[in-house]
Simulated scan of single mutants.
Amino acid sequence: MRGAIEACLGRYPQWLERSRRALAEIRYADTSVVRPETIAAREAFDLAATGQPRASADRLQQAINGLEDPALRGWFMEQKAAYLHLVDPVAAQQLLTSAVNENEFVLKPAAGIAPAKIKAAAVQARTAAEVRSLVSPDPFIRFSILASRSLGSAAIVSFTVCTVCTMTS
Rank of each mutant, 00 (worst) to 15 (best):
Q14E: 04
I156A: 00
K119S: 05
A154T: 09
Q94T: 05
A129F: 07
T50K: 02
L23W: 14
F105Q: 03
M77N: 12
A129W: 14
K117P: 00
S19W: 01
T38G: 15
D69N: 12
C8M: 07
A41T: 00
A81S: 11
G152D: 14
A120H: 10
F143V: 08
A22P: 00
E78M: 09
T163L: 06
S153E: 08
R54P: 03
D69H: 02
F45D: 13
I141D: 03
Q79C: 02
A4P: 15
R73Y: 01
A122P: 09
V100R: 09
N65V: 01
A155V: 13
V33C: 06
V106A: 00
S148C: 07
E43N: 08
A114R: 09
I64Q: 04
A155P: 04
E37W: 12
G112F: 13
S169I: 07
K108A: 05
P139W: 10
E104R: 04
Y12P: 05
K108D: 12
V131H: 03
A110K: 08
V106Q: 00
S56F: 06
V164Y: 02
L146A: 12
A4S: 10
G152R: 13
A55S: 15
P70R: 04
V33S: 07
L67K: 02
T166Y: 11
R73G: 07
K119W: 14
S148Y: 04
L47C: 11
G66M: 03
A154V: 12
E17F: 11
L84T: 03
R2M: 11
S136Q: 07
Q62R: 13
A22E: 14
K119Q: 11
K119G: 11
A63Q: 02
L96D: 00
F159Q: 06
I156N: 00
P89Y: 11
P53T: 02
C8D: 10
R2N: 12
T50L: 03
R27N: 01
V164M: 10
V123W: 12
A99Y: 02
R35S: 04
L67A: 11
A125L: 08
Q61R: 04
R27W: 01
L107H: 13
Q14W: 15
C162D: 03
A116M: 09
F76V: 01
L60P: 08
S133D: 04
Q94H: 15
A121T: 05
R20N: 12
R27L: 10
A22S: 15
C162A: 08
Y83I: 00
E130Q: 11
Q93V: 10
V100K: 08
G3K: 09
S148R: 07
Q52T: 01
I113S: 06
A4L: 01
T160A: 02
R2D: 08
T166E: 13
Q14G: 05
R20Y: 06
A116H: 06
T163M: 07
E68G: 04
G51V: 05
I156L: 01
T160K: 09
E43A: 01
G74V: 02
A22I: 13
A129G: 15
Y28E: 12
P36W: 15
F143C: 01
Q62I: 06
A22H: 05
H85D: 15
L47F: 09
A154R: 13
M77F: 11
D46E: 14
V164K: 10
L16P: 02
A4H: 04
